[in-house]
Amino acid sequence: MHHSFWDKHSHINSIIHRLDCRVKIIVFTLLLLAIVTTPGQDLIRFLLFGTVIMLIIFLSRLPLIYVLKRSLIVIPFVLLIAFFIIFFNGTEVVSSFNIGRFKINVYREGLLVFQNVLCKSWLSVLCLLILAESTEFNYLLKGLEKLRFPRIMILVISFFYRYVFILIDQLDRMRHAVESRGFKAKLARRIKILGSMIGWLFISTYDRAERVYMAMLSRGFTGHIHSFRKFKIGQTDIIFSLVLLSLILYIRIGVF
């Protein structure tokens, strides 16, 4: 495997990394909840949440550029889902332009929905990224287990984590194989080839995932998560969560 695991920064030593992961999970979940329940037009609140998140990144000593870059992966999905709403949803026209013979309207309501989806998804992804990047994966899973998270969900997450990398790995191998054979073709043929490649990708990933699972079984895996990190809620955990939670609460319901 030549890609990086997503908790590759989990060994940094920072206050955020040292927090008990149950505290972290709860605080980040509440932050996420506060963000997604904020009304879409409240740009100021989103800005403040963004500032809090930046502060957490700063405290966690995670490389800022890296986190921001990774958080951008949501943008294509947001665009795909919400971009066209701008032109179709609403009554109040803010501006309009012509493409050929068609008149295109930009609606105010549509813009609001777009802004809403964009802010919320981007900030949420940032939250999740910080949580995942600052916590050793097994420790995170064990934390979920301690918080009585359903066992089946924990297993799904843990396999997702392993298999996503197998998928990427397999994709890499395939890309190299294709490139090394000088893949050039007309568009139609290209699309056809790409289609069968994607099919192959899923089949081969499935087979490898199965072998990885066998390798886990052969070393006595029974579905239990093991982490060596201790669970202990100390002073720092309490102070950190109190400060952050009051900040979150203030931003969410304060008057601006």
């Binding site: 908790d7 072998r211 390798a215």
Partner: peptide, 8 residues
């Protein structure tokens, strides 16, 4: 070995 190495 890539089947057997599944932890970071």
């Amino acid at each position: 070995p890539d089947d057997q190495i599944f932890m970071p």
